[in-house]
């Protein structure tokens, strides 16, 4: 009883558990799994990322030129990072950033 009274009084002066969001930013952890980014100059077109992607978020579309066109759908992506781990030129051709997808 006494303990709970002390607790209720101390709660009056305790720091808020929630964050005042738009004015205060939520702390992000390092290495957050965000958008997959791609560089066409470094890509060797082995299509390994397309094969391993569970939701088919990465698709190489056939074009008139020799190399196919990389297409990435951030709304299908589950951000597991399997494509990056399977990429032979990890961090150069394909890497995982900490960015969020754009809200349409």
């Amino acid at each position: 009883m006494i303990k709970s009274i002390i607790e209720s009084f101390s709660n009056l002066f305790a720091k808020s558990e929630t964050i005042n969001y738009p004015y205060e930013q939520i702390a992000k952890f390092k290495n957050y799994r965000g958008l997959i980014e791609y560089s066409a100059d470094e890509c060797i077109f082995c299509y390994k990322c397309e094969k391993v992607c569970p939701p088919d978020a990465i698709v190489f579309k056939p074009t008139k030129e020799k190399n196919r066109l990389y297409e990435y759908n951030p709304n299908l992506c589950i951000y597991c990072g399997e494509c990056v781990r399977n990429c032979p030129k990890e961090d150069l051709a394909l890497w995982q950033s900490e960015k969020k997808p754009k809200i349409i």
Binding site: Y32, R33, Y79
Partner: peptide, 18 residues
């Protein structure tokens, strides 16, 4: 949940084990 997020990089879907 913070520990899990810091370790795996995501809050709910960890995709930690392969």
């Amino acid at each position: 949940m913070d520990i899990q997020e810091a370790i795996s990089g995501n809050r709910v879907q960890f995709d930690f084990v392969c």
